[in-house]
């Protein structure tokens, strides 16, 4: 069963690709720490957690640039860990303007990426 990341304020229409939106995590009721993606509703573990909507901005904690095997013809892409103020870390792709490098500490925003997926962009660009 595939679980797409959720947004809290459903049933609003799904976000359009590229549009900033808010990811939903689960907060451990005892520790106050969050996990992403949210624990599935059907999970017996669910009572241990409460849903929490993550802030619009996160901070880049670490990154890598993946260089696919040249035989694949795929272009390099950036993957990041993004830390949210709600004590949640989210893994995902970072879409950067050509020529720009990722940097630890840069501000990021999550955007809808179609098919229940998301990606990150530099926060300043999402605010435009």
């Amino acid at each position: 069963m595939q679980h797409a990341p959720q947004t809290l304020d459903a049933p609003r229409p799904p976000a359009t690709a590229g549009e900033p939106f808010r990811l939903v995590a689960s907060r451990d009721c005892q520790s106050g720490q969050c996990v992403f993606p949210a624990i599935p509703d059907s999970s017996p573990s669910n009572p241990r957690y409460e849903p929490v909507q993550l802030s619009e901005q996160a901070v880049l904690y670490s990154f890598t640039v993946i260089h696919p095997n040249p035989k694949s013809g795929q272009a390099p892409f950036v993957l990041v860990y993004a830390d949210f103020p709600e004590k949640a870390r989210v893994f995902g792709r970072l879409r950067l303007p050509e020529g720009r490098r990722p940097q630890i500490g840069m501000a990021l925003s999550a955007v809808a990426d179609g098919a229940g997926q998301y990606s990150f962009i530099p926060a300043a660009e999402s605010d435009k």
Binding site: F63, T64, R93
Partner: peptide
């Protein structure tokens, strides 16, 4: 695993996980 599925779709592999540690 729903979480590994989601992150694998984003591009997570074992080299990715170690590379993140390397950068940090």
């Amino acid at each position: 695993d729903y979480k590994t599925d989601l992150y694998a779709a984003q591009g997570m592999t074992l080299p990715t996980v170690y590379a993140m540690r390397g950068t940090r």
